[in-house]
Design a protein around this nucleic acid. Structure first.
Length: 501
RNA sequence: GCGCCUUUAGCUCAGCUGGUAGAGCAACGGACUCUUAAUCCGCAGGUCCUGGGUUCGAUCCCCAGAGGGCGCACCA
């Protein structure tokens, strides 16, 4: 066997690949380029459906069109072939008659494989049964597929293969295509809503010297020329606030952030965050804006503001509950809690509810743990949980009515956190103290605590106006609006273990 | 990281108390000018995830490992 020859192989896949590679050679021998450079179409398949969708059965138009797409199905009738052509929008049937195209072209079309890309010209018609079709007068191969498609009826269901070979998933699974259309619509809707409100879209660094703005373990990398340790960002917050100091007033960024933590149906190590900052606003303004963003996104993506949460319809357009974290914990435990209480009291309550308390947990952290354990998963309908303890909110402003709480909210929907927002802390002296508390907590063994970001403090010292800020986990929002059960269904290429080839 | 489940033809899946595997689709050969997952006839296709062990004999039982799913933990 020479190096060039195709291994005829021992299994079905290799045999099929060898056959298709062989037909490539045969095409080239006949002077056909199986991979031409370009192709002009007159209509997308969706345009044809829009224009001719109402055609009666058995009609023939005078419209001669040129289309392109992938052959998904072939139904061979002897001297007549029906082929299903799919493009990005939809699919349409090609009607190929031997009497029209001639013997040679008919054979060539008959020799096309499922998965091949073709361009076709012909007359728009409907069959006797009413199926919108193109009565073909010519078909040209645009790209030969050498590997067979998944099952034409069941598609690809194996989750591993769907995530690893998203290309094959997208070819066969309408639902997968729909989900990514929803994703695009949601993100596009956010840009529209924010542009309408005078927000400027910006891009800030992904490589950070200090991984701040959230509590999470970072990915660590290294810049060779500068011989410097860098971290992939875990949040967008601190750079966007620097822009508020700079006077940009309303900024947002939709960007990838990275957290070196577990993977689950709700977590991917890299995910997409939208953060915005609005000068002269506080967290109540941000609640209103969050509701608008969500309702617009649902409407733009699905045509309705109603989404399914655990299979129950919920209209996002109704105002959302606003309730303090300490009040929710009191409702759940029957015990009044407040960060000003002695730590031992809260430890006792935590133990009663099976909450593990680590040595570096202060009263505020224990209250949050109690909330996570007793309340979080019960918050099915959209709920703004407000008033987080200062201890767990180093970048949020203290509540104007309670020095132990902050002006902060987290938005929970379907038991999942989707958003986090504050009246932003803009006092540089207090910010330094908060950072120093974080630093102490880190030294006490809290791996996720932050450090003192001197450049950020310098920015604060130039003066940041009163500002409201918001962060939204876009993947989870797409899950909500698209009704996805796993974050992997809304991320085109989710993080997986190394594949063995 | 821990627990449970799972891995059989290119795809979707069967496979009984242990006797070395089947179907549908795709492919290939044939029939067919209105099909819709076309239909009909024929033919081929296998490292039963990997490595050990038990057994006369392992897809099946046991152990270890790998991939995947779900749950818990961490977190958004």
């Amino acid at each position: 066997m020479s190096d060039e020859s195709v291994d005829l192989g021992t299994n079905g896949l290799e045999q099929e690949r060898a056959r298709r590679l062989g037909s490539l050679d045969a095409l080239r021998a006949k002077g056909t380029n199986p991979y031409p450079y370009r192709f002009d179409r007159s209509h997308t398949l969706g345009e044809i459906r829009n224009e001719f969708g109402a055609l009666e059965a058995g009609s023939e138009t005078k419209s001669h069109v040129t289309v392109a797409g992938r052959i998904l199905l072939k139904r061979d009738q002897g001297k007549l072939i029906f082929a299903t052509l799919q493009d990005r929008e939809t699919s349409i049937q090609l009607f190929v008659s031997k009497a029209i195209v001639g013997d040679d072209a008919f054979d060539a079309i008959n020799n096309l494989d499922l998965g091949d890309w073709v361009g076709a010209t012909g007359i728009v018609m409907t069959t006797r049964k009413g199926e919108l079709s193109i009565k073909v007068d010519s078909v040209i191969l645009l790209s030969k597929a050498v590997r067979p498609l998944p099952d034409k009826w069941h598609g690809l269901t194996d989750t591993d293969t769907r995530y690893r070979q998203r290309y094959a998933d997208l070819i066969g699974n309408e639902e997968s295509r729909r989900m990514f259309a929803v994703r695009h619509a949601v993100i596009s809707s956010f840009r529209r809503t924010l542009h309408e409100r005078g927000f400027i879209e910006v891009e800030t660094p992904v490589l950070h010297v200090e991984p701040g703005g959230a509590h999470a373990r970072p990915f660590v990398t290294h810049h060779n020329a500068l011989d410097m340790t860098l971290y992939l960002r875990i949040a967008l917050e601190l750079h966007l606030k620097r822009l508020i100091v700079g006077g940009m007033e309303r900024v947002f960024e939709i960007g990838r952030v990275f957290r070196n933590e577990g993977i689950s149906t709700r977590h991917n190590p890299e995910f997409t965050m939208m953060e915005l900052y609005q000068a002269f606003a506080d967290y109540t303004d941000i609640m209103d804006l969050t509701e608008v963003l969500f309702v617009n996104a649902a409407n733009d993506a699905t045509g309705s503001s109603t989404v399914l949460i655990d299979d129950i319809p919920v209209d996002l357009a109704k105002p959302w509950r606003r309730v303090r974290m300490i009040d929710l914990v009191r409702e759940a435990t029957g015990v009044e809690v407040h960060p000003s209480q002695p730590r031992e009291q809260l430890v006792a309550l935590a133990e009663k509810h099976g909450v593990k308390v680590l040595p570096h947990f202060g009263p505020g952290k224990i209250i949050e743990e109690l909330f996570d354990a007793t309340c979080e998963t019960t918050l099915r309908e959209p709920t703004f949980v407000t008033g987080h303890p200062v201890e767990i909110s180093p970048l949020a402003r203290v509540d104007r009515n309670d020095p132990h709480l902050t002006e902060r909210f987290e938005l929970f929907v379907g038991g999942r956190e989707l958003a986090n927002a504050y009246s932003e802390l803009n006092d540089p002296v207090e910010q330094r103290l908060r950072f120093e508390d974080e630093q102490k907590s880190k030294e006490a063994g809290n791996a996720e605590a932050g450090t003192v970001d001197e450049d950020f403090l310098r920015a604060m010292e130039y003066g940041m106006p009163p500002t409201g800020g918001l962060g939204i986990g876009m993947d989870r929002l797409v899950m909500l609006i698209g009704n996805a059960q796993s974050i992997r269904d809304v991320i085109l290429f989710p993080t997986l273990r190394l594949e063995a080839f």
